[in-house]
């Protein structure tokens, strides 16, 4: 697969994972919404960093994303460890 596009396997894993989180937090939609917000903030900041050609110190790091998701998924270790498999520097 070209390095610039997610492979079908990566895409399928992401679909299954989002579906799993959505179902796990059916009774707590605010947790699911917070998860989406973290991802969108991360993506937006990644784009901002690209546009500003990697301004040092800007953007949310993978560590920050992981720790935000960890505090959101407290007690859901399986979800957290699966999330770590998506992070580039986990």
């Amino acid at each position: 697969c070209p390095a610039s596009d997610p492979s079908p396997v990566e895409f399928d894993s992401a679909i299954s994972y989002v579906n799993k989180i959505k179902n796990r937090f059916l009774d707590h939609p605010e947790i699911y919404r917070s998860f989406l917000e973290i991802l969108h903030t991360y993506q937006k900041e990644q784009l901002d960093v690209k546009e500003s050609r990697g301004r040092p110190g800007s953007g949310m790091t993978e560590d920050e994303v992981f720790s935000k998701v960890a505090s959101l998924f407290k007690g859901q270790e399986d979800l957290l460890s699966e999330f770590g498999q998506f992070l580039p520097d986990a």
């Binding site: 596009d5 492979s7 990566e10 895409f11 894993s13 992401a14 989002v18 991802l39 993506q43």
Partner: peptide, 27 residues
């Protein structure tokens, strides 16, 4: 089948892009 909203789909996009970056950084 999944009942995904546009927000869900964009989360899928972000996650799969992260996985792609991870693959690129490991290769």
């Amino acid at each position: 089948s999944y009942d995904f909203t546009p927000l869900d789909s964009s989360a899928v996009y972000v996650l799969s892009s992260m996985a792609r970056q991870r693959r690129a950084s490991l290769s």
